[in-house]
Structures are given as structure tokens and as C-alpha cells.
């Protein structure tokens, strides 16, 4: 967080959402009772392994997946479930998404000009052509591409450039919240830094708030202000990124952190990887709850674990 306000306003509130797919015997719960807030101006990280439900949460926020229960509030207004057309337009304008694979997420048969302005056409039908061109040119410049590129097709661009086009298409809507779903994992190592830097600079320039969904913890550690860890559809821990990486409480978080590959042979040679075994929790008699164990630090624990974690915290102080 840039240390701006005393209590920055909550831009997005996710309250106890559950997302289920299928029905009857085929029912599958992808996200179970997840709650968190995203404050204005921050980069909020959501990490988990494949299949943990992190993408589903992102998709639930932009209303691609419907929530089964719980609610999502945007600036205090409910945006999940049945909402008015007006609210829907507001969601479309203010919440946008950057997708993982820039090779798959751009229309191969459309020019960059159309790709970038597609949202614009939908949101402001009949808008003055001059304004649209200006908005596209500005978005392209902001992501470090030349306005001339508008007349080209996506296949003429490299992976990094295509991801920039994906970001430009988001910027043209002038959103407040951007959901970035693994925005750099499909990119080459030498290109990743460019895109990360671009995202950070746009946060300042366009005052964006990000929900950064990733499985790569080293990237999350570098870029996010707060991080939530998700395991099998449920959050297990949430804290300021630095605190989470320094003092992980939940055994799953610890296992995840211990497995981060480090580009330092000396560290790697002496690395001890912790293995997480869900059966270690004794949840049959004493189910876990989502508790705030210290200010701003949430963890999933039952009453026995709570005591244990509290002791751990006591030791650090």
C-alpha cells in the first residue's frame, strides 16, 4: 500500500461467496464461503494452485460465473445476483479483466483498433468517431505501443505486445478495478518484467486497483500489497504481503512458501520443502472459522489452532 489514507475506502467487498457448478450428484463446490475486501489503490493478490478456485472468484466478480450464495459489493452496492441494467453497465465499465494467454484472448480476425474499442462500442454506442479514436490512441500509448499499430492484426505482434494490447483494451474503458488473471505466466521470462512494470506504472497513472490472481509466489511477493491464499476453494490465510511471507501461520501457506524456487543455488541446496497434509487438521468435532488473529491478518483455524497461532504471534513480538 502506498501509505496514503488512514483508512482507505473499500472498493470491493466479497462477502461469504460460494460458487457451485452442476447440480444434484454432479454438484461441485469451486469456491466455499470466501470473504475479503479490496481497498482503493491497492494490489490485492490471490494465490493458489491450479484448481483452487482463484480464477472462479475473479470470474464471479465480473459476473461470468454466478454466485450460489453470498454477495459481492462494489462501492457498497450489490453487484452479484440479479441487478439492474444500470448497475450492470457500471460493473462493465469499472471492473475489467486481463486474461492469462494473450495468444488465445485476442480476436485473430479483428484489427487492434477494433479489439481495443470493442468495449467502447458496447458501452457508448453511437459515440463520436473522433472521441473513440482518441481514446484508442491514448490507451495504446499508455501501454507503450504506437497508435499506428491500431491498423494491424494480433498475429503481427509478439506475446509481450499482445498482452499490452490486452491491457489497452482494459484501459479504454477507464476502469477502477482490474482483475489480472495470471497476466504474465504465459509470457517469456525476459518480457515478464516489462509487463509487471507497466502494470505498476498504470496503477499510479490511471489510479487503478488490481486483483492480481497468480500461482507464482515470487511475483505476488514483488507486486502485491496484501495477499490471500486459497486452497481447495476456501481461503486459508490473508495478510499484508510482507507479513504473510515473513510470518505465515497456516500450514498450507507455509508449505507453499517453502516451495518457492529461488534463483540462488546456495539457498536452493539447503531448502527444506514442507509438505501440507490436510488430514492434520482435526476439524470433525471443531470446525474452522475465518478469524482475524491480529489486526489485518486473517487465518482459517479452529479454537485449538487459534491458540497455537496466537502463541506463534506472541513469539514474534
Amino acid at each position: 500500500m502506498p501509505d496514503s489514507g488512514l483508512c482507505p475506502e473499500k472498493l470491493l467487498e466479497v462477502k461469504n461467496i460460494t460458487v457451485e457448478f452442476g447440480a444434484g450428484r454432479k454438484k461441485f463446490t469451486a469456491v466455499r464461503d470466501v470473504s475479503f475486501d479490496i481497498k482503493k489503490g491497492e494490489i490485492f493478490g490471490l494465490v493458489g494452485e491450479s484448481g483452487s478456485g482463484k480464477t472462479t472468484i475473479g470470474r464471479a466478480i465480473i459476473r461470468i460465473n454466478a454466485v450460489t450464495s453470498g454477495s459481492i459489493l462494489y462501492r457498497g452496492e450489490r453487484i452479484s445476483g440479479k441487478i439492474s441494467t444500470e448497475t450492470d453497465r457500471k460493473v462493465v465499465k469499472n471492473i475489467q479483466m486481463i486474461f492469462q494467454d494473450p495468444m488465445a484472448s485476442l480476436n485473430e480476425r479483428a484489427k487492434v483498433d477494433y479489439i481495443v474499442s470493442e468495449g467502447f462500442y458496447n458501452l457508448y454506442p453511437g459515440e463520436n468517431e473522433e472521441n473513440r479514436r482518441r481514446a484508442v490512441a491514448r490507451a495504446l500509448l499508455d501501454v507503450g505501443l504506437l497508435p499506428e499499430f491500431a491498423d494491424r492484426f494480433p498475429h503481427e505482434f509478439s506475446g509481450g505486445q499482445r498482452q499490452r494490447i490486452g491491457i489497452a483494451r482494459v484501459l479504454v474503458m477507464e476502469p477502477e478495478l482490474v482483475i489480472a488473471d495470471e497476466p504474465i505466466s504465459a509470457l517469456d521470462v525476459s518480457i515478464r518484467a516489462q509487463v509487471l512494470n507497466l502494470m505498476s506504472s498504470l496503477r499510479e497513472k490511471r489510479s487503478l486497483t488490481y486483483l492480481f490472481i497468480a500461482h507464482d509466489l515470487s511475483v505476488v511477493q514483488f507486486i502485491t500489497d496484501r495477499t490471500a491464499v486459497i486452497h481447495r476453494g476456501a481461503l486459508v490465510e490473508l495478510a499484508e504481503t510482507e507479513k504473510l511471507f515473513a510470518n505465515p501461520l497456516h500450514p498450507y501457506t507455509r508449505a507453499l512458501l517453502s516451495a518457492i524456487p529461488s534463483p540462488d543455488p546456495a539457498v536452493e541446496r539447503h531448502k527444506r520443502v514442507e509438505v501440507y497434509d490436510p488430514s492434520r487438521h482435526d476439524y470433525a468435532a471443531d470446525p474452522p472459522a475465518w478469524i482475524e488473529i491480529e489486526p489485518g491478518h486473517f487465518v482459517s483455524a479452529n479454537s485449538k489452532e487459534k491458540e497455537e497461532y496466537e502463541q506463534n504471534i506472541g513469539q514474534w513480538v
Binding site: S190, R192, S200, S218
Partner: peptide, 23 residues
């Protein structure tokens, strides 16, 4: 360039070392 563009070696809040251009 490859090593210094890794987020693990970056300093939080500062831009990462980035390689210009494409292969």
C-alpha cells in the same frame, strides 16, 4: 538481464530491470 529481471531480485516499489524489445 535474465537474472536481474527476476522479481525475487527486485526491490519492492521500484521498477524491475526489464529487457527492451523482443527476441
Amino acid at each position: 538481464a535474465l537474472l536481474s529481471s527476476l522479481p525475487q531480485l527486485g526491490v519492492k516499489g521500484e521498477p524491475l530491470f526489464a529487457i527492451r524489445g523482443t527476441p
